[in-house]
């Protein structure tokens, strides 16, 4: 029987033989469709309906009502503002700190390897671990920060009490975690500068600042732009640090747009509205990405 089967394969065996490649990737594609692509389209459709996941009512098609409602909602705009503050301050600080670290690690010094490893660690930790760590770090009664300040002033220090303090605390955590990422990119640029250019500049007797501007910077410009884009997109979606450290408080002063989407979807159960807001966020990120690609291509044309 088996001899016959091998010499003359039946229709199923022939099908498997002919389509082996597609068949092998199909489970992965199925999972991707089920978990990712289908929800993506489903939520897009959902954003045009009036629907709440915790009600029995049938979804009603309402055209762009959700989008209009969201974009005319002052709360959404104030969340966008909060997010903008986080993006602007945090990304800028990450760039500065990351850049300075890169300048430091470009030089050779004893213990460089060990120190570099330590500096890179935050980036590789889990968001939740970092969030939890900082939550305890800022804790008023036994937190390290509060204890340290208490030792000097005698008063416990509740950094998360004021809006400014809370924003600063979250930004500090974010900068701590992501500056190493910027550093890696900048460092890659710095070490790619040919040594003889620095020697020529030394012989040409130019100042440190001019040398940096005209020789070093062109080599890190592209990577710096990449760092800005990555960090802007990531910070724009900032959720974990906020949710774990302040949960948006005090009041709503640290509630970023990503946290707000979560609340709309899973606390207020305005499901279709949250889907619409999600798509607005996606749109912003796509615009940012294309802006970056535009700059990159223009640069490629220049050189």
């Amino acid at each position: 029987m088996s001899a016959i089967a091998t010499t003359k394969p039946n229709i199923i065996e022939r099908f498997f033989a002919r389509h082996r490649g597609p068949l092998l990737v199909s489970p992965a594609i199925l999972v991707l469709v089920a978990m990712n692509i289908f929800p993506l389209f489903w939520s897009f459709g959902l954003s045009f309906y009036k629907y709440r996941a915790n009600r029995q009512a049938e979804p009603v098609f309402v055209w762009f009502d959700n989008y209009i409602k969201i974009l005319s909602d002052p709360v959404v705009w104030s969340r966008f503002q909060t997010t903008a503050i986080f993006v602007a301050v945090s990304v800028l600080l990450q760039l500065i700190v990351g850049f300075l670290l890169a300048v430091l690690f470009e030089k050779q010094f004893p213990g460089r390897r060990v120190l570099l490893m330590l500096v890179l660690t935050p980036m590789m930790l889990s968001f939740v671990a970092v969030g939890a760590f900082f939550r305890y770090y800022y804790e008023p009664t036994f937190g390290l920060l509060s204890q340290a300040i208490k030792a000097i002033t005698g008063e416990p220090f509740i950094v998360l009490q004021s809006p400014i303090g809370a924003i600063g605390a979250i930004i500090f955590a974010d900068v701590w975690m992501w500056s190493p990422f910027v550093m890696l990119l900048v460092l890659a640029g710095l070490v790619s500068v040919p040594k003889h250019l620095y020697e020529a500049a030394e012989i040409d007797r130019v100042s440190w600042w001019r040398r940096f501007r005209t020789i070093t910077f062109p080599y890190i410009r592209g990577l710096l732009l990449l760092a800005v884009l990555f960090r802007t997109i990531e910070t724009f979606k900032l959720f974990d640090a906020v949710f774990l450290i302040t949960e948006g408080g005090p009041g709503t002063s640290t509630e970023t747009i990503a946290v707000y989407v979560y609340r709309v979807a899973f606390q207020y159960f305005r499901t279709s509205e949250s889907a619409a807001l999600g798509y607005i966020l996606l749109f912003v990120v796509v615009v940012l990405t294309n802006l970056y690609l535009f700059f990159v291509q223009r640069r490629a044309k220049e050189t």
Binding site: H196, L197, A200, D204, R205, T214, I215, P218
Partner: peptide, 30 residues
Amino acid sequence: RRRNMAMVFQSFALYPHLSTYNNLAYPLRE
């Protein structure tokens, strides 16, 4: 920088991101 010498490197060591004009002007800038 205080020796006031000029050197032509074997690899030329031209500044890749500067034009010929700016390459030439470079030693005069400061």
